[in-house]
Amino acid sequence: MSQNTEPDKASFSATRVFLRGVILTLPLSIAVIPWGILAGSLAVEAGLIDFQAQAVSAIIFAGSVQLVGMGLIKAGASLTTLLLTTLFLTSRHLLYSATMRSRISHMPIHRRLLLGFLLTDELFAVCSHQTRKEFNFWFAFGAGFSFYLIWQMATLGGILLGKSIPNLDQYGLDFAVAATFIAIVLPTIKKLSVLITVVIALVFSVIFSVLNIEGGIIYSSLIAMSCGYAVSIIRKEAL
């Protein structure tokens, strides 16, 4: 990111910008492989046929929804429970979409639909610090699409492995996600308001998780964002 010294964007070909997106997302794509394997193997454990297990990743393309959803399906939950849980788990994407509105909403419809479909935690993480000027469709598409392809391959791996390695979720592969997000979030803490946001999000997300509160991610995010916002107003921090 630090090498991005305001190049003349017009001189970059779409391919080069696309590849830059692919490369900058590579750490996240690699880190998500175990998570994708888990999603594939859990889908098989939940009783889905291989083709459908792959389709879950291809069409839904949302790690937490897939993992929790497969657990619910295995437990025989009702459709209402399944959809409400999906809504809670995915509601944080509403925040991402609102945050990206100024950067994406003016694009042609096919680009909006594409970036919307690809707007995962990871794509948001990679793009969230870019200014409106820095943001580029081909960069975001490179980041999102390469991540999508790796998610599909990892899922396929999980479907194939899942049958021979039962309880793949017992091996601590989820640490990859924690490590990656820690690596993204901590260097962005440059102001007290952001530090407060992170600390509050940490405390509340853990409390909600321990209390088994559905939708804990979105509740703790909103509480933390409110606290960060309040602190920045009180301290008159510049954005």
Binding site: I184, V198, S221
Partner: peptide
């Protein structure tokens, strides 16, 4: 004001995802 508020989406949401993985 809303844009300023949304500025905290990244640190808040990403932390709310990793923290329970570590401590719960």
């Amino acid at each position: 004001k809303i844009l300023h508020f949304l500025h905290y989406t990244g640190p808040a949401a990403l932390t709310a995802i990793w923290a329970p993985i570590v401590f719960h």
